[in-house]
Write a protein that binds this DNA or RNA. Sequence first.
DNA 1: GCGCGGCCTTGACTCAGGTCAAGGTGTTCT
DNA 2: AGAACACCTTGACCTGAGTCAAGGCCGCGC
Lengths: 252, 252
Amino acid sequence: MTAPLANDGDQGELQPCTHSYQVNCGNCRLNSICLPLALESDDIDQLDSIIQRSKPLQKNQHLYRESDEFQSVYAVRSGTLKAYKTTDDGREQVTGFYFPGEILGMDGISNNTHASSAKALETSAICEIPFNSLEQLSSAMPSLQRHFFQLMSREITEDQQLITLLSKNSADERVAALMLSISTRNARRKLSATQFRLPMSRVDIGNYLGLTVETVSRVFSRMQKLHILRVDNKEIEILDTDSLKGMANIGE
Amino acid sequence: MTAPLANDGDQGELQPCTHSYQVNCGNCRLNSICLPLALESDDIDQLDSIIQRSKPLQKNQHLYRESDEFQSVYAVRSGTLKAYKTTDDGREQVTGFYFPGEILGMDGISNNTHASSAKALETSAICEIPFNSLEQLSSAMPSLQRHFFQLMSREITEDQQLITLLSKNSADERVAALMLSISTRNARRKLSATQFRLPMSRVDIGNYLGLTVETVSRVFSRMQKLHILRVDNKEIEILDTDSLKGMANIGE
DNA sequence: GCGCGGCCTTGACTCAGGTCAAGGTGTTCT
DNA sequence: AGAACACCTTGACCTGAGTCAAGGCCGCGC
């Protein structure tokens, strides 16, 4: 195991380190999200050894593009990414937002080709996990194999949540649900569950939720009028979580 | 490899055999769909040995229910199933239809709990694949491990297709897309791509596509008037595949 | 054969959210 | 500092799909 360099241990997501990438899985403060399994530290070292950390992605840079050859899955170390598909007639469908600790790119496994594109919404640091090595390691480490099955299964259940949301819920409910989802994911990372900055634009939100920008904007205004949210451009404060949950009208 | 028994080799999906379950993966005519990998025949035998075939499910019987403990994934041998989630306020969201050769239940892996329910739309024969055994076998058989990663990844990309459909497409486009999807899946099983019987009700179709029954019905009428489809209750004939594709306005 | 219940279709009306248009605000580049 | 641009908000209007209501069709049990 490489010894962690002085300043990098808790570097975390806020100021991506541009001069050194000596983070490792053992000292990464996201590993409880990214690797929820109680891996043996030997195992962590093995996993660590296949992971590649390159220099951060700038805002709007692509991590991969639809129809690129699939080589790796990726873990977000800092920043945020959006995944999206382009439809035949050129429109975009945002299929997900990825926050630190979350894994993306798994939709490329089935065809050896990425089924969506992924683009940084802000400067973002990424861990690249070459899939071939991951497969080999998984065969040798049942707990890792299981972990990846679980990760993929979670992606499926989350997509199904979104399907239900799109198919059954009103604009208010959709936006409320997204705010709650971001809140929960923030809390998992030990950040505020009630105050945060949205990394994505209103267009992206609308696109993800199957709404127009105008509608998203009107919903925010409405929620603000009802004192459920304070909205200042991208800064969000949840004033009344219970009402927000009521408005979302869904599980989570 | 065991020699196929006299009558069971091509038993197929039409008349599920209620008196004998001596089908095996080696002689199953769906194995090119279900196991697209060129497995060694030794490997197939091993896989075959962990698969359990029980008696067929009758119409409306559940294969599993939301929040049941997750034990197995399932392959459809004959018949059709629908998977659905029940929302907090008691409404249903159909998340998928499963035809012979297709695998369901993978959404249960992440929590050891099924995230949806699965119910037979008609009498259906099922192969049960206990997940623990599958995991063990996967560790020993890299090609099987890869195959399951791919299957799960395919489920993800299909869900993302549906997300896009729900979020961006009109009622006409949604129904057209579903008809094409069923047509393609029929063709894979060497059945007619242009004539088939819908195993699901209009309610289920509407529910799956985020539409009301009335709208689904109106779309069918419209397509019939345009001579794209012939619709006689559940019997569908595609008269003009190109127009249907035009109407669907999507990739597949 | 008849009556009942489930499923499907059609019509008339309503409304949530889309579209179009205008103006505001914040950020970046020179 | 100022211009240019990207992004956000609000209003007025329109429309596709939902709702409500009625009637038809088909299969099943008696």
